[in-house]
Computed example of a mutant assay.
Amino acid sequence: MTEATQDNRTTSSQKVIYAAIAANLGIAVAKFIVAGITGSASMVAEGIHSAVDTGNELLLLLGERRGARPPDRKHPFGYGKSLYFWALIVALSVFSLGGGLSIYHGIAALQAPPPLEDPMWNYVVLVAAAIFEGYSWNVSRKALNAVRKPGTTLWQAVRASKDASVFTVFIEDSAALLGIAIAAGGIALGQYFGNPYFDPAASILIGLLLIGAAFMLARETGALLVGESIDPDQLAALYALFRREPALDTVASLRTMQLGPEDVLLAASVQFRRGMRIDEVEQAIARLEAAVAAGHPAIRHVYFEASALRAVLH
């Protein structure tokens, strides 16, 4: 991976995060102000949601910065997985703070629902929130589309993405837009039927939505944190590349592990042809490393198992 590629990825990820911070911070303040005026439980839930999202984006920025640190003695493969760790913390905060508090507040409001008030300011803030969240969502969508394979859906692009910053913001913003719709629906139904229980019920639904989003984030970031491989198509292309090398008799296995959004480790278990001189083996390894770097720039570490060389030397 070239420095230009790394810089482009970092710039794209940070643009997504900064857009989300700007949207969520302003929206959170507005939602809490209107919730205080109208007493709407669903607006409180939405305010909590936006405030949690703002803190989450700051955690992702921390992960980006820590993940960009160069390798050192204690971390010879670098700090790329720091981003996955902090993205997992984001998932936990969405679950506990966002989902848990929204459900708690909704249940409390169901027990003593506030009287119905004029909902005009609720709608004004929700419309503004939808505009800002929509902008942030679109920025993350474009970042996903930039790496999405032809013929795949946006959800498949999320599942395949190794950039936790981008897919975390995308999932959060998708949940935020759905939450806005639920809050608006709860307020509107409460006014239409003259029933104060619709609004706190909407708060509980928003909490359940956030818990679902948290599980989704935890599953994606957890898989990357424990060492996910590259996707099957890339792995198949890698096998084809190795099998084209005439110096190899067999390619037993190619094992990969994602160390960061654009940082992959490859361990190759191969068999060189018997009778080759050591300089011929070295040339074959150099050809393979060059081909891997050209076709798969994210693979920054290539290792050949010792058994491959022992068979040649004996």
Rank of each mutant, 00 (worst) to 15 (best):
P246D: 08
L224Q: 09
W86H: 08
E289P: 02
R219Y: 11
Y135N: 10
E57H: 08
L126Q: 07
I103A: 11
L235E: 14
S102F: 02
Q111K: 08
G295W: 14
P232S: 06
I33H: 07
L177N: 10
A22E: 05
Y18H: 12
G275F: 02
Q283M: 13
I131N: 10
E228Y: 01
F132K: 05
N24W: 00
P246I: 04
D279Q: 11
A290W: 02
I27M: 13
I182E: 07
M1W: 02
L60E: 02
A218H: 00
I107N: 08
G190Q: 12
A306Q: 15
L259I: 01
I187K: 10
L309W: 01
Y123R: 03
A213Q: 08
A181T: 02
L97Q: 08
A45H: 05
A87T: 11
G186F: 03
I230L: 07
T168I: 03
A20E: 04
L209F: 13
L238T: 15
T168R: 04
Q258A: 13
P246F: 08
L25H: 03
A146R: 06
T5H: 12
A284V: 01
G99D: 14
I171W: 07
A130T: 10
S203F: 00
T54D: 01
T38P: 02
Y303Q: 09
V124C: 05
A160P: 00
Q234A: 14
S50R: 00
L154N: 00
